[in-house]
């Protein structure tokens, strides 16, 4: 039987968020030019978090997220995708925390920032693990879209400008499962980049 996940769209205009989860949860977090401090507590065994953070950045901003695996057999998959449009600072602090008491956890984070110009972007991907029986992965990429991606799209007749737009949209929406109507402002903002 397929387990249904609780779905949360972050659409309030707050700076800090705290989630205490006791069931499988998908969180969609789409933001435009804002700093955040997010804490997610996985408080029940056998639950899974999928967190999609996507942001379009123009000024100096910092995004902090901390996933606490407070129980054994908890899983987290955090995808942070940002586009730094201007030459300002965009910083990601991403902590995955597994204390000694939590066994057999799966903690994953994928962090990517695309600089459109010469943005000063930094990522701190931290895995703070105090238990040996875990699976923990992180990745971090800062840079431009790879030429190989543009070549592939252009080789099918798509102009460089339209290829770039396709890549931006794919990168920033970041998942097929999101309801675009609920992030309409964000989708409109992509077209302004």
């Amino acid at each position: 039987m397929v387990k249904m996940s609780k779905v949360i769209y972050i659409d309030e205009n707050k700076d800090t968020y705290k989630f205490d989860l006791e069931e499988d949860t998908i969180i969609y977090h789409y933001s435009i030019n804002k700093s955040y401090d997010v804490e997610v507590n996985l408080n029940k065994e056998d639950i899974t978090l999928n967190y999609y953070y996507n942001n379009i950045n123009y000024d100096d901003n910092t995004y902090k997220i901390r996933i606490n695996h407070n129980k054994s057999n908890t899983n987290s998959f955090v995808y942070n995708h940002g586009v730094n449009v201007s030459d300002n600072k965009l910083h990601y602090w991403v902590d995955g925390v597994i204390p000694k008491k939590s066994e057999n956890c799966d903690c994953n984070q994928d962090n990517q920032i695309i600089n459109i110009k010469n943005g000063k972007s930094k990522i701190w991907p931290n895995l703070l693990v105090d238990n040996y029986d875990v699976n923990a992965n992180h990745s971090a990429y800062i840079g431009k879209f790879k030429e190989s991606l543009l070549f592939y799209l252009m080789s099918r007749g798509i102009s460089r400008k339209d290829s770039y737009k396709l890549l931006l949209e794919g990168f920033l929406l970041n998942t097929d499962s999101v309801d675009r109507e609920k992030i309409k402002d964000f989708v409109d903002e992509i077209n302004k980049i």
């Binding site: 991606l149 592939y152 799209l153 798509i158 339209d162 949209e169 794919g170």
Partner: peptide, 14 residues
């Protein structure tokens, strides 16, 4: 090439 986030149909139609 793998292009994450760009769907096959969207790509071909474009």
């Amino acid at each position: 090439t793998v292009i994450d986030g760009v769907s096959n149909s969207e790509f071909i139609r474009t």
